[in-house]
Amino acid sequence: MNELLLETRALRKRFGGLVATDSVSLAVRRGECHALIGPNGAGKTTLIAQLAGSLAPDAGSIIFAGEDVTALPAHRRAALGLARSFQITSILPSFSVLENLALAVQAVSGSSFRFWQAVKDETALFDRAREILHSVGLAEIAERQAGSLAHGEHRQLELALALATRPQLMLLDEPMAGMGPEESEQMVALIAGLKGRYTLLLVEHDMDAVFRLADRVSVLVDGRVIATGTAREIRANAEVRIAYLGAEEVA
């Protein structure tokens, strides 16, 4: 169970004078839910972007499933099973919800360089798409245009798209962002249901959610990982409390 699925070694990214990722060495074990927390501007999304492959690090390496993926483009990493759910919703707005999912399933169902056969006849794609929609609770709005959904539904669709690519590891960048308490609660339940079946790297601001979901937590401050441990250890860590959870609690 302690096998590493994702590992970064001395990862570094600099934007002008700002060091956004400062020799980050992170280790995510297969099957765990690993949370990444940190104050605003700590470099969480920058780190996720490097892991997903949309941003190239200046130095260091990224090992995924035993393979050095540092130089691989985003689509190759996705094909290896590294799925990303974006902090800012990224879906196909002019497609229906079902079509969004069908296109995600298509990505992992053989070559898409097929020019003659109509997609709508490929019932297997749509069956699988419906299955996933069902599991995230979007089955009733399958025919709606994705661009017209409410915010909470967008977040669910975002997660469903990541799920559809048969991932080994899901990078969940603030899945609860902008949600009301009730929607948040649903999303937490949904993610709890993914635990064990998928390895999760969860970026989240909501500390209650983090401490409920995460097996282990890493704390990022000013681009550096200042601590990694179980939820209990992190809560007890004095340095973390000063840097992040609020100095007043220490006093």
């Binding site: 949309s54 985003a74 996705a78 990505a107 798209l161 690519t165």
Partner: peptide, 10 residues
């Protein structure tokens, strides 16, 4: 519609 999303779908 959304090239970045297609890229991240693989």
């Amino acid at each position: 519609d959304n090239e970045a999303r297609m890229e991240s779908l693989g």
